[in-house]
Amino acid sequence: MEENKHTLLHYLMLLPGVGFILMFIGSSIFLTLAQSFGLFSITGRSAFTLSNWAAIIQARESVDSLMFSLKMGILSSIGTVLFAFPLALFFRKGGAGKGMLGSIIKVPLFIPALVAAFLIVNLISYHGLVNSVLLRLNIIQQPMRMLNDRFGWGVVFIQIWKNLPFVLLILMASIASIRDDTIDAAKNLGAGYWSILFRIFVPLAMPGILVSMILMFIKAFGDFPIFSVAGPIYPAAISVRMHIMATLYQEWDQAAVLGVIIIVTTFFVIWAYSRFAELVQGEE
């Protein structure tokens, strides 16, 4: 009885947060889902059909787009965390000049994604700074064509540039709660650097690592501006494909299908990341 009362109270306490979000998001998600089956269509027609799903699943463009966005999302989220984690460890202890450094590092946080994309594209363009410097140093004879590369390295680079401080902030917050006595105890037991890193820091910081990977994935997977400036000519990212589907081909319902796919895929990757985090933590 006591237990139940508590749970009820706990659910009520979720209302201002989760309830607030559901109040606004619920019907939007429902409408997207309904539209993907041809109901409440934006064009005014409304009849249940599976043809939109069939059309999207059969088109190689959509599959390519999904795989490409997935690749970019996973690479960006892992890449940013790999860069940010050592930095977060470095910032764990204070030291001369670190305050200044911490502030400079955070600057890209305040640069909108679209602007970040165009600034970096500026650097790697045909006669951009990178090519000019390499030419002058005689490292290359001909400027390299790096814009809109087929693999998507440009996108990954911009994502890391823009979001390094974002992930750093989360990781610093989660590392902050690791106490020195834990580490001292490990040291006294003869643990080396690597074993302290992998047996203490990584597992204890795992909630933070997980959240950064999840939030970074959402950002990179669903991103529109960076893909549209720096992404490859083909395939289009799934968000771009969704936009093209609706505005160019007027296939609003098929765009809704892509929207549902974006949401479901994101959930799936979050689940996979969470499982991975549980495994890592479970080892301890």
């Binding site: 363009s125 045909y126 006669h127 951009g128 400027p143 064509r145 814009l147």
Partner: peptide
């Protein structure tokens, strides 16, 4: 972007 790349000399 096409116009920008003319300006950039690419």
């Amino acid at each position: 972007d096409s116009i920008i790349r003319i300006n950039d000399g690419e």
